[in-house]
Structures are given as structure tokens and as C-alpha cells.
């Protein structure tokens, strides 16, 4: 083996650096609106409060439903909303706005991959929210409600990486949906429907195991439950060992698949383009 094997890391390093720069932009942009996060904490608190009372009324006789007792379901709901404050992003809305304002042309002339630009900015925002929204919300909810701790160190670690993957799944879906704005012009109604769809089918409102069996079968082959249901099951220790590894593996698969889908949809959408105004 005398041949000169020269690995070229340059493109990857450059891509990462660009990703890092856009992440910083997202982070700094969000800094300007930090006051909004105080009301954000209140909003999440209200959501959890509503569901606290609903579930309390449901479990008034102290029974178990699908293997969940009241304390588990309360933790399920609260952790679900806490991680939502991290993985949630507005890539689709931002893209729709760019299309309406005719600023999409700017995205097209930048010499970077548009998808990774949007995802990087959103990730910067998410890191920001982790400190200013997710952490305080978690603290407040922990103080007010008798929540459970993670089922163990392994569960917590798996949960952590699972939530990071959740972010990329949501980002992948949102970018793909956002590309629809290019041909449909304005997609605000569509985004609203998607919002409720994700809330329900991600398992944020109630565990997927509560759904009728036929619905569960359909949901099993869709990416949605890997956004909230699976991470929280990891937190609660309901997925261990092989199931844990498998869950993370499937999440990773969906990240790659959805990013590929978004990439393809972007290429298809930008083949024919109308820029409004300018």
C-alpha cells in the first residue's frame, strides 16, 4: 500500500462551518425577542395545567389505562410539552413568509444549501430556547407538579439524544411542507392543519397506545410518533435495551428520509418559480 490516500475533509468542514454560522444567526436573531419567552413559559404552563385537570378527572378512580397510572401520565404530558419547547420550530412559517414577501430570491442566490441553512438557523434558535424556555419551563413544572424523574441514567441519555433527533425530524417535516409555499403561494391554512395533526399524532396530547389499534398500525409506519411519544417513553423507561436502540435507529432513519424528501421537494419546487414584488 504505497498509494497516496488523501482524504479530503474540506467540503465537510466548510459545510459544518456554514452550519455553525447560520446557527449563530438564528441564536442572535432570537436574542432580540427574548422577552417573548417569559410569556412562552406562561403559555406552556397553561397547557400543562389544562391537561393536568383533564387527566385528574379521568383518573378519579385511580385506575390504570394502557399501563399508565396518573403519575406516569402527568409526567408523560409535562415532559412532552417541555421537550416541545425545544424541538418546535417555524421553518415552514418562515418560508411561507419569505414567499409572501418575495424574499425567496435572496435564498436562491446564496451559495449554500438552502435546506441546511434553514435547519441550522432553527437549531440555533432551539439551543437558545433550551436555555431560556425549556429549562425554566421544566423547573416551574417540576416545582408545581409531582413529576417523575427519568427511569435511570441510560434512559435519560437515550431520551436526550432522542429529543435532539426529534428536532431534526420536525425540521425535516417543516422544511418539506415549507417548500409547498413556493408553488401554492400562501399556505397558512395548511400550516394550521399540520400543526394540529402533529399535536395529535406525535403523541403530545395523549400516548399513541391509547389510539384504536388500526390507527396505531398506520401511525407506526409514519414519522410523527418519533417526535414526542418515543422520546417520552424513553424518559419513562418504557423502552429499554434493544427497544431503546431500535427506537433511536428508527428516529435516525426518519431524519435522513425526511431531509432527503425535503431536498427533493425543494429541487422540484424551485424549477418553476414566481417571485412576488421584490
Amino acid at each position: 500500500m504505497n498509494g497516496r490516500v488523501k482524504l479530503d475533509f474540506q467540503p465537510a468542514v466548510r459545510a459544518l462551518r456554514v452550519f455553525g454560522q447560520f446557527m449563530r444567526v438564528g441564536f442572535v436573531n432570537t436574542l432580540a425577542y427574548r422577552l417573548r419567552y417569559y410569556t412562552g413559559i406562561v403559555t406552556y404552563f397553561i397547557y400543562v395545567a389544562v391537561y393536568y385537570f383533564i387527566w385528574k378527572a379521568i383518573f378519579e378512580h385511580g385506575q390504570k389505562i394502557e399501563g399508565f397510572d396518573f403519575s406516569q401520565i402527568l409526567t408523560y404530558i409535562a415532559v412532552g410539552w417541555i421537550i416541545r419547547s425545544f424541538y418546535f420550530n417555524n421553518i415552514d412559517q418562515d418560508m411561507a413568509q419569505q414567499v409572501i414577501e418575495g424574499k425567496l430570491a435572496m435564498d436562491l442566490i446564496k451559495p449554500v444549501n438552502v435546506q441546511s441553512m434553514y435547519v441550522a438557523q432553527a437549531f440555533g434558535e432551539a439551543v437558545f430556547r433550551l436555555a431560556l424556555l425549556t429549562a425554566p419551563t421544566a423547573l416551574v413544572l417540576l416545582l408545581v407538579y409531582p413529576l417523575r424523574w427519568p427511569a435511570g441514567w441510560a434512559s435519560f441519555l437515550a431520551f436526550f439524544w432522542s429529543v435532539v433527533l426529534s428536532f431534526f425530524i420536525v425540521a425535516g417535516i417543516n422544511f418539506a411542507v415549507g417548500t409547498l409555499a413556493i408553488r401554492l403561494q400562501s399556505i397558512l391554512g395548511l400550516l394550521r392543519a399540520k400543526y394540529f395533526l402533529l399535536e395529535l399524532f406525535s403523541g403530545l396530547l395523549l400516548p399513541i397506545s391509547f389510539f384504536p389499534h388500526a390507527a396505531q398500525k398506520v401511525l407506526a409506519v409514519l414519522p410523527f410518533q418519533y417526535i414526542s411519544y418515543v422520546p417520552v417513553l424513553l424518559y419513562l423507561g418504557k423502552l429499554r435495551g434493544l427497544a431503546m436502540a431500535r427506537a433511536l435507529g428508527v428516529q435516525l432513519f426518519w431524519v435522513v428520509a425526511l431531509m432527503a424528501l425535503g431536498h427533493a421537494m425543494w429541487r422540484w419546487s424551485t424549477r418553476k418559480i414566481t417571485i412576488q414584488g421584490g
Binding site: 400562501s186 397558512l188 391554512g189 395548511l190 394550521r192 392543519a193 400543526y195 394540529f196
Partner: peptide, 8 residues
């Protein structure tokens, strides 16, 4: 917008 918000 009309039909998708109806779906929502």
C-alpha cells in the same frame, strides 16, 4: 385555507 382550517 378554508378546507385545511376546517380539517384543523
Amino acid at each position: 385555507a378554508f378546507f385545511s382550517s376546517m380539517a384543523a
